[in-house]
Design a protein around this nucleic acid. Sequence first.
DNA 1: GGCCAGGACACCA
DNA 2: TGGTGTCATGGC
Length: 224
Amino acid sequence: MKTDLLEIHGILLERFGPQHWWPGETPFEVTVGAILTQSTSWKNVEKAIANLKKEGFLNPEGLNHINPDDLSTLIRPAGYYNAKTRKLKEFIKHLYENHDGDLGKMLAADAKDLRCELLSIWGIGPETADSIILYAAGKPQFVVDAYTKRIFSRLGYVNSETGYDSLKEFSEKNLPRNVKVYNEFHALLVRLGKNHCRKTKPLCTECPLKKRCKKKKTKTSRKK
DNA sequence: GGCCAGGACACCA
DNA sequence: TGGTGTCATGGC
């Protein structure tokens, strides 16, 4: 099968324009955002980030010292606040125990090693790890998410059973290994997904990829 | 009022 | 090992 991902990247870029991801000011902010946005809309994450920033806790030292109850209160708008409090604390604990609280040191590692290290931290799975590597460390790791899977499935590139690693491998195999391309393409897929490839009630008429869509968009069963 | 959002983990058969 | 439940707020 012809897998013209770069062409699709071009179509989406022309349609939506640059997405300017990740919307974080520092690698640390990007990392915190990557954890907070797990299964959560970015708008809600922005509120939590704003709370942390306003109170002066959006830095390694701040998150290291804040007590869990206060952290839960500040990140409450992002949902799953108890679970995410633990995830942020586990990350910070790892950062201090292994890198003296210096995120720059941690992110300087080889991408493959960094990925293994991130995945060893409780609460950080494949997507969050790849997001941190791509958007905070600036190293080429393609980020797969629910939109990527749904869109690639509807385009007929993969089936709905394809797992994270296979989707990642497929994407990296069919795109130039380039941070800028990975960055923009993932952001564009999310944009497309939000606008035209929802789980239910897809807005097919205005979708820039509607001619390429192989599968009828039907309501998918929720596997959660 | 239900559905869903830029996941990950625990538990059980 | 794979399927299912849990975590939770907020916008549409």
